[in-house]
């Protein structure tokens, strides 16, 4: 009997929860499907909000966000995407690859904008970067590895081997490593890999690289970035300089980088959303690759390793280096 009541109760909730739609035309609903809590994704989101709040003021619209984080759970990302599609929002914003794929599977009519995805073509999201096709477009966060490795070469003209700790289980990492190997060849580095599958393995993986390389590098890998402190520790104790690829990691103890500015990337993403809200079709909006890097250095680390940044970087008009405490 109890079972029967329970199922009835479930049904009632279903029916009622399906009923609340009535939407004010002035109100714009944007759903956000974020795969995991991550500082870079948060910065992206901040950038999006900045652009959109300005747009909404100018156009006297009211923007409502429905932000859900999938806690790195694929089945949850699917559920969230479906739920959000049912609310019939104006735009679905998806941050990180599995979330974008889940959104893609949830609707073919509602415009989807993805943010911070390293390789949208390989993830099956778009047909090509220039002509995405379908109902989807967005921004890619391919890191400017070229500039990053040029920087390392300029600081260490004699370095030969770069040790990289990475988690081969991440979609982004694979795309990055391909690019890293390509770029490192250009600057005459040899890459030595140490794989991990969780943050707890980073310490030993980094230690296994000691003696085999002159320089450490942390790629665009969420596992490694989450446990970067262990990498920093190994780097300091063995006096091997650690270069990183994003701003947040410089704050955590990496030496310097040309990083993707995720806030800027978020603004680019926001601009795409505005274009769609203004009536453009996602299929015709090219994917924006946000690799306008800016130089960020960690002064502490520079002192520790006794490194000076070559003059050409300080004089260049890209952007003044932000000196971190």
């Amino acid at each position: 009997m109890k079972a029967k009541y329970f199922i009835q109760a479930l049904l009632i909730v279903f029916v009622f929860s399906g009923c609340k739609t009535n939407k004010d035309k002035k109100e714009i609903l944007i759903t956000v499907n974020q795969y995991v809590h991550h500082p870079n994704l948060k910065k992206t989101m901040d950038g999006v909000k900045e652009v959109l709040s300005q747009w909404s003021k100018e156009n006297h619209k009211n923007i409502k966000y429905d932000i859900q984080v999938a806690n790195a759970d694929v089945s949850l990302a699917t559920q969230i995407a479906k739920q959000q599609a049912m609310k019939n929002p104006d735009i679905m914003l998806a941050l990180a690859t599995p979330s974008a794929q889940a959104c893609q599977k949830a609707t073919n009519t509602i415009p989807i904008v993805f943010g911070a995805i390293t390789d949208p073509v390989k993830a099956g999201l778009v047909k090509s970067l220039e002509h995405p096709g379908g109902n989807i477009t967005g921004t890619s966060d391919q890191w400017p590895y070229d500039k990053q490795f040029e920087l390392i070469r300029d600081i260490f003209p004699n370095a030969k081997k770069i040790g990289v700790v990475l988690n081969p289980g991440e979609a982004n990492t694979e795309a990055s490593m391909k690019k890293i190997k390509e770029v490192s060849k250009k600057y005459g580095f040899e890459i030595i890999e140490a794989p991990v599958s969780s943050t707890s393995e980073i310490f030993s993986a980094a230690n296994s690289l000691v003696g085999k390389c002159d320089i450490f590098f942390a790629p665009a890998d969420n596992t490694v970035l989450s446990g970067l402190e262990a990498f920093v520790k190994v780097s300091r104790t063995n006096n091997i300089p650690l270069f990183v690829g994003d701003e947040g990691s410089v704050e955590k103890g990496g030496i310097a980088t040309f990083g993707v500015d995720y806030y800027e990337l978020g603004k680019d993403t926001g601009k795409l959303i505005v274009r769609i809200l203004n009536g453009e079709k996602p299929a015709d909006i090219p994917v924006v690759v946000g690799n306008k890097g800016k130089l960020v250095v960690n002064e502490d680390a520079l002192k520790y390793f006794n490194i000076t940044i070559p003059d050409k970087y300080l004089n260049k008009s890209i952007k003044e280096p932000v000196l971190q405490e």
Binding site: A72, D73, V74, S75, T78, T97, P98, Q101, A102, Q104, K105, A123, G124, G169, E170, A171
Partner: peptide
Amino acid sequence: LYQGFVDISMGTGL
């Protein structure tokens, strides 16, 4: 097939 992709994290915790 239902969700449209395979991801290395899809079995965890199931």
